[in-house]
Design a protein around this nucleic acid. Structure first.
Lengths: 107, 107
DNA sequence: ATATTGTTTTAATAATTGTTTAATAATTGA
DNA sequence: TCAATTATTAAACAATTATTAAAACAATAT
């Protein structure tokens, strides 16, 4: 199970419009990822702003980067998000499946 | 599908140690919820701080409250969290299930 | 009515966050 | 090597957020 501080970090990283858009873009892009400049263009943010946001996402473990020639490719790493969701839903409804159903939760 | 601004609001609400602890507590508590004071005691925060955090969680749609005598009970509302997760995983890997598998993602 | 218990609101303060501009790497091509 | 392209870093600033203490509000019991 993930540590609370890492979960908070991941949630905070995604709790910003530009970064959320970037992450979703990378989710659809799949393992190959996308070049930083291409992402910047898509989400309409300056290179400096993007670097700041990439750092936040990387530090949270939500994305990974690799250099390819002049370009830096970023790709989503789903492990942290899965861990985040598991952390949030842990011991849902105290293990009572019936209560769970009532709540409308997916578990 | 949820609106981006609401997703950001929900993520931001959970991206804080005390609120994350409160939410998890309410996830385990199930539909009946817990009294505000009881929660405050569990997460070791002052009443004023708790009210501030409850407001944030309520405003994000993550919890709901009902008054029962002197007590105010808070309960998790899973709809928003489910929507949040759906939003994050939408169109994962461009619909390519094989790429999805490679990524280690749950979809 | 008055006091008591539980919760929220208000005001003030300290800390964090996002953006911009300018300067600094790193990589490639002429 | 020198210039061009891509991306990151650093400093400065405005805006937002979390906490505290004090006051206010709501519900119940004596």
């Amino acid at each position: 199970m993930m540590k609370p501080t890492q979960v908070v970090k991941a949630l905070a990283a995604l709790a910003q419009p530009t970064r959320l858009a970037v992450y979703r873009l990378l989710v659809t892009a799949g393992p190959e990822g996308m070049a930083a400049g291409q992402i910047a263009e898509k989400v309409k943010a300056s290179p400096a702003t993007m670097s700041f946001h990439f750092k936040t996402l990387s530090h949270a473990g939500l994305v990974e980067s690799r250099q390819d020639g002049r370009f830096v490719y970023y790709a989503a790493n789903f492990t942290v998000m899965n861990g985040m969701v598991d952390y949030l839903t842990e011991n849902c409804c105290g293990g009572n499946a019936e209560a769970c159903k009532t709540s409308g939760k997916k578990c």
